[in-house]
Design a protein around this nucleic acid. Sequence first.
RNA 1: GGCUCGGUGGCAGAGUGGUCAUGCAGCGGAUUGCAAAUCCGUCUACGCCGGUUCGAUUCCGACCCGAGCCUCCA
Length: 457
Amino acid sequence: MTELQLTNTQGGKKHPFVPRDPQSVTMYVCGPTVYNLAHIGNARPVVVFDVLYRLLLQLYPKVVYARNITDIDDKIIAAARERGGDIQAVSDEFTVKFREDMAALNTLVPTLEPHATDNIDAMIALTEDLVAKDHAYVSDGHVLFAVESMPSYGALSGRKLEDMLAGARVEVAEYKRHPGDFVLWKPSSPEDPGWDSPWGRGRPGWHLECSAMIRAHMGESIDIHGGGRDLIFPHHENERAQSCCAYGGEFVRHWLHNAYVDMDGEKMSKSLGNVRSVRELLAHYPGEVLRFSLLSAHYRSPLNFSSDLLDGARASLDTLYNALRQHVDVEAAEFDASETEVFEALKDDLNTPKAIAALHASAKALNKANPAEVARAKGELMAGAALMGLLAHDPEEWFTATQSEQVSAETVEQLIAERIAAKAGKNYARADEIRDQLSSKGVVLEDGADGTSWRRS
RNA sequence: GGCUCGGUGGCAGAGUGGUCAUGCAGCGGAUUGCAAAUCCGUCUACGCCGGUUCGAUUCCGACCCGAGCCUCCA
């Protein structure tokens, strides 16, 4: 058995994952800023790290998986202002919708889901530590992190302070000592939300939130920190700076970042108008199709999202479910997930495309299995699929669940009965007529050895 | 300008210094009353130019092309 290997963003190399404490592994993934609906790109890290979480649960006795909710942020303030409501209403609404959407993608609920607004004290404490150690300074009501105070600043994202200046396209606020300095705490005007602090009423900077919540809920050092590639700089670089400078030590053992989801070859962005929300997609595709799509490329490669991708995912899932459906009558044997090819593929830096190939191999084996082998083959397929959070539905339901209600299940069953009678009487014209009639309504009939089954196309 | 990461068959997408990815699509066959599903077989590939090597899609170098980050962003 090989060990788990992961690519560490810091250093850019794939190497064995060695947790600080094999009895209790810790993973923190940056969660949503709850100011609008999650789009399919937001869903990628959630699904990818859900697979990693399942894998870790298989490997270690205890896994603490935290995903934060950023519920105080200038974007939320702006959204609340726009709709004339209050901030809490906006963040509550989109927190609930985020959870619903992610549940539809069959992701497990994290161990911890810390909210930024519940951890303001920890953020103030961290800022105080940084000020006390001269890594931060107060200027014009702001508390700023001094990037020059940290020799290794830039080590995660692989950039040097002087290089960053060359490309600076933003005007530098005059209260900054160095253009790269970033805000830990900023002042709030009376109408903005704020909390009392040693520096007056204000609110935390975005980067500070994650550092403080990690320290408060998981300790000063964690095994895995994940998120989307775009978070590497500045968000994670700055988190690293804050935490390392505040209390030293090894903040994060393994940094993991997933690549983007593109839409038809272009980056998803509001200006291009090609942002697709998970909720919108769920109206047209089962959550499992979205999940499968997101896992069809390796997490570090860009994923081009398109209807072809979704249709292909659906076809693949149909194939896998069909194998299970052929053997509904046989109960799957217990199968240790750590004996599957899927497990081996996932341990190699979460090679989900290879794992999916293994799933297809299992399905093929199940299709070909002789009666004595069916239970074991079915168990293997299901164990591998469970590791990826797939094949969670009842196969019969998968094929017959109503997407567009053109014809009821009862009608279908009636017509099938009539058709069987027609076939028995060699009235093939009538049999074909019924099949064509149902086909036009999106129902496909399949004559098997033991009767006729159907599915919606 | 700086820093990253990529370019694999019709499409999607793994992987490897020398016989296999896999899925969808195509083609041939088995099966079927005919289909569908399933099974068997099969075609199409590694951006370009050099180098290393007995041998490179895989290693090295140049080039071309593409994407991302450097600013809120999964």
